[in-house]
């Protein structure tokens, strides 16, 4: 078990670094720098974060905080991820109420967007690596990307259509692992 303070500080670093979103930084800090979990474990947590309603990085934060430090760890992780950025965002929001035109923020955001796209794609490549070398996982990865990324179908429809088959395939696989040779 890790100390709540260390969990808080680590997730605070994830939150405050997360310009353009924290998805990239969560893996960077927890898997690459701290080595608190592997890519394989991270991607399974991310999957659960997707299934639970709400921001998936937030759900992942609750689950990882709990894994690292129990219930207290979960609250420490939530506080770390949310409170420092919340303060920044509220400060920006108050500024916005007084100076509502923000062409410079939008220009900066445009430039940042391209970088964040690159970071997310690199992250996706790293997370795809530990997937088992079998047909099913890669097929579901490709179908998800085709549906959501290329065809712009609603995420909820794509997930709803693919998830039962993906879970069924993994269920069969888990069963055959349990009984070797069966």
């Amino acid at each position: 078990m890790l100390a709540p303070l260390e969990i808080f500080l680590t997730f605070a670093r994830v939150g405050i670094s997360g310009f353009g979103g924290v998805n990239f930084w969560m893996r960077r800090v927890l898997v690459q720098e701290k080595r608190w979990l592997t890519d394989g474990e991270y991607v399974e947590g991310l999957a659960m974060g997707q299934l639970i309603p709400g921001p998936n990085v937030y759900n992942l934060t609750v689950m990882l905080g709990h894994r690292f430090g129990g219930a207290l760890g979960a609250w420490a992780a939530i506080a770390g991820l949310f409170l420092p950025p919340l303060a920044v965002v509220i400060a920006l929001g108050l500024l916005y109420r007084h100076f509502s035109a923000l062409p410079m923020v939008q220009a900066a955001l445009r430039g940042m967007t391209f970088i964040v796209a690159g970071l997310l794609l690199a992250n996706a490549v790293a997370l795809a690596r530990p997937l088992p070398r079998r047909l099913a996982p890669w097929l579901f990865l490709a179908l998800t990307f085709a549906g959501v990324g290329l065809l712009h179908w609603p995420l909820i429809l794509v997930m709803g259509a693919l998830a039962p088959f993906a879970v069924a395939a993994a269920w069969r696989e888990a069963g055959s692992q349990r009984r070797p040779g069966a």
Binding site: T113, L119, L121, A128, T144, G149, A163
Partner: peptide, 23 residues
Amino acid sequence: IALRRGIAPIAVGLMFSSGWLLL
């Protein structure tokens, strides 16, 4: 186990999609 392993590739596919759509 089936849930976590089954959804994992979909989560990775969604991350590829996010990067691609942002771009």
